[in-house]
């Protein structure tokens, strides 16, 4: 017997799907800006392991020589990113959704079990009480804190003199830029894992992000 089980409230679905193209545009326009001074790398001494980014990346994605354009997009869509994020946080606070989203004292243990299950070192998936498992709670809360981080480091870079205290809080102008960049890399990594997990979880889970409900199969007597 099938049963319709509500999962994601309408507001959260809106915030989620608005955020997706907006964040994509912020990352893209951010790359147009970053190109003008692309100094970041991973390495030691004069040895570079990973350069952000090789010239071929800019050429392939047509990211080069578009600084002014990048800034104009970035400082336009920043408002959508900010307002949508703010609306999401306020909604989760006032609707009580924060209760299922925030990690609790079981989350770390549960996240570890989920991880072991994901890499096939544990046979049984841990039993999850709410909508989200511990790993999800940690991931979905972290991404909001990262969003706040992007917003604040962004402001620190945007107005480093007028908001000098904010810039100093992040360790200065250069450090604010590094944090802003690292957070962006973080979103890309989050996105990759997120897509992988969504594909793995299957149709029922994905449908819930559009329709709001999941379909559960239950025994006859459980339906009232």
């Amino acid at each position: 017997m099938k049963k319709i089980v509500p999962k994601h409230p309408l507001a959260i679905r809106w915030f989620h799907w608005i955020n997706f193209p907006v964040l994509a545009l912020m990352i893209w326009s951010g790359l147009l800006i970053y190109w003008a001074n692309d100094v970041y790398r991973i390495g030691f001494g004069s040895t570079t392991l990973v350069k952000f980014f090789p010239d071929s990346v800019y050429k392939t994605l047509s990211l080069d020589k578009r600084l002014a354009e990048g800034m104009s997009y970035h400082f336009f869509f920043m408002w959508f990113f900010f307002l949508n994020g703010l609306a999401y946080v306020l909604y989760t606070l006032f609707s009580g959704e924060w209760r299922v989203l925030l990690p609790n004292r079981h989350s770390i243990k549960e996240a570890w079990q989920v991880f072991l299950h994901d890499i096939h070192l544990r046979k049984k998936a841990p039993e999850v009480k709410g909508k989200f498992n511990g790993a999800q709670q940690i991931a979905y809360t972290s991404i909001i804190i990262m969003g706040l981080g992007s917003l604040l480091t962004g402001l620190a870079i945007y107005k480093p003199v007028q908001l000098g205290w904010l810039c100093a809080l992040f360790g200065g102008y250069k450090a604010s830029r590094v944090i802003h960049f690292v957070l962006t890399i973080g979103y890309v990594l989050f996105f990759l894992v997120h897509i992988y997990q969504v594909i793995r979880a299957g149709w029922n889970n994905f449908r819930a992000m559009v329709t709001g409900f999941e379909v559960h199969t239950v025994k006859e007597e459980e339906i009232k």
């Binding site: 997009y73 400082f75 107005k159 007028q162 000098g164």
Partner: peptide
């Protein structure tokens, strides 16, 4: 044009915090 307008709006928001008391370090 929409970006030019938003640039002007951004200026109107952020020139409010421009102050002689806010000094570059």
């Amino acid at each position: 044009r929409p970006f030019k307008n938003v640039m002007a709006a951004n200026e109107q928001v952020f020139n409010k915090i421009l102050s002689d008391k806010h000094l570059a370090k």
